[in-house]
Design a protein around this nucleic acid. Structure first.
Lengths: 229, 229
DNA sequence: ATCGAATGTGCGCAGTGTCAACATGGGGTT
DNA sequence: AACCCCATGTTGACACTGCGCACATTCGAT
């Protein structure tokens, strides 16, 4: 049969695609962006890549792994958005102010991403019920308190979005803007604050509020968290 | 045919069930408790109620409405848990302290419910993409600022869990423990704080942390929010 | 007693995730 | 350069889902 498939992103020259795993992931990401995690359907993703449904099983053990691949991309984009937000504002002269600015910017970037890519954001935090979103790599060898700031069982490496906020907090401690005793769970609390804001303003009655008000709420929420710390 | 179905919860005497809507909802709630929103599958729910799949469509327009019914039950249970938490601690003599205690208890109850019923909690906040969790009743007739505390587009009536926190905040203002200017988005911020904590400690690497540490984090998170307000 | 509206049943359709058996051809070995 | 292996794709099928349609049963007003 000579049916040249309309090769979407990366062409397929012959029987073998050459880069199917990527093509599938990208197609899945596109679906997730448009319709959230539920929109990631393996068969259609394969179809969109001009390939048979079962071909996907050569690159993903099952549907869930496809979703995980999308999550990873989403996480990367989240981190990118946060980094962009960091780079956007101009640095403050005082190192303490600068660290605080970075922390605030990181949080703002987090929420901004959620608003800009709700489908991906929802996909990142979805379908747990047995180990998922940032869960997975490395068992929680959790024996409490390693004395330092980081608590065990935390998504350190490989979770840039988390790291960005955590580092800013470390700086604040070094610069004396945050008492060391209060450092302990600050990263999680900060993360939880911006995450809560994102989810509520996205998946709740509050989603109907006009954008300006949402922005006010986000500002207020972040300020409250920073003050409280 | 004389096949007496093993009528699960509420018996079915004959051809007509008598209370199918409730039976279906309860069965669905049970599935959701065990497996989250994804576990709510219409056909099986009908099967569990000893009834044909399509019978469900006499009581729910579609699968989504079944899920909504479960959400409503979940919301009610959430409120109940929060109320229980309020009643648990003994009231403080000073009215200001008491209001603060209530606010903290409400937040704690929220998180406690999330931990106690993760399946229901996840179901409550799930599958949006077009109007859902507390969204739905009444369009956001949102014209900003009615001057008073409540902002338009907020789940006031019918959302007891929200009301509990909101009322405590109102009391704090009346008792002079919270400046009126800062009242404005405090309810949303408080809600978002406890929601963020719940989600992260439930659906994230952090879920692997030992319970005591989670409890510490929750305490810290709530304290930060209260301080920040 | 009768008849219409609720309510429940069976069957079928489209679509999904997944498996097993088979086809293809690119790359390393000779 | 010829050869064969095995990673990669393909077809077909199974079990399951949500949902619509036509039909059966029964409850409650008349």
């Amino acid at each position: 049969m000579a049916s040249e498939q309309a090769a979407g992103t990366s062409g397929r020259r012959g029987y073998h695609h050459g880069d199917l795993r990527n093509a599938l992931t990208e197609a899945a990401v596109e679906r997730a962006r448009a319709g959230g995690p539920q929109a990631i359907v393996l068969r259609e993703t394969a179809r969109a890549s001009g390939v048979s449904s079962t071909a996907a099983y050569r690159h993903f053990a099952n549907h869930h792994e496809l979703v995980v691949a999308v999550k990873d991309r989403g996480l990367a984009m989240l981190a990118a958005t946060m980094r962009a937000e960091l780079a956007a504002g101009e640095p403050c002269p005082d190192p303490g102010d600068e660290a605080l600015r970075r922390l605030r910017a990181a949080g703002l970037g987090y929420v901004r991403f959620a608003f800009a890519e709700p489908g991906l954001f929802r996909t990142i935090f979805h379908g747990v019920t047995e180990g998922d979103p940032m869960i997975g790599r490395r068992q929680a060898a959790a024996a409490a308190g390693d004395g330092e700031g980081h608590l065990p069982g935390t998504p350190d490496e490989s979770e840039e979005s988390y790291t960005l906020m955590s580092q800013a907090l470390d700086e604040l401690v070094v610069l004396g803007r945050l008492p060391a005793e209060r450092r302990k769970y600050s990263d999680v609390v900060m993360w939880s604050a911006v995450h809560g804001l994102s989810v509520l303003l996205l998946d709740t009655e509050l989603a109907h509020l006009p954008d300006e008000i949402k922005a006010d709420i986000v500002r207020r929420g972040i300020d409250v968290a920073l003050n409280g710390l």
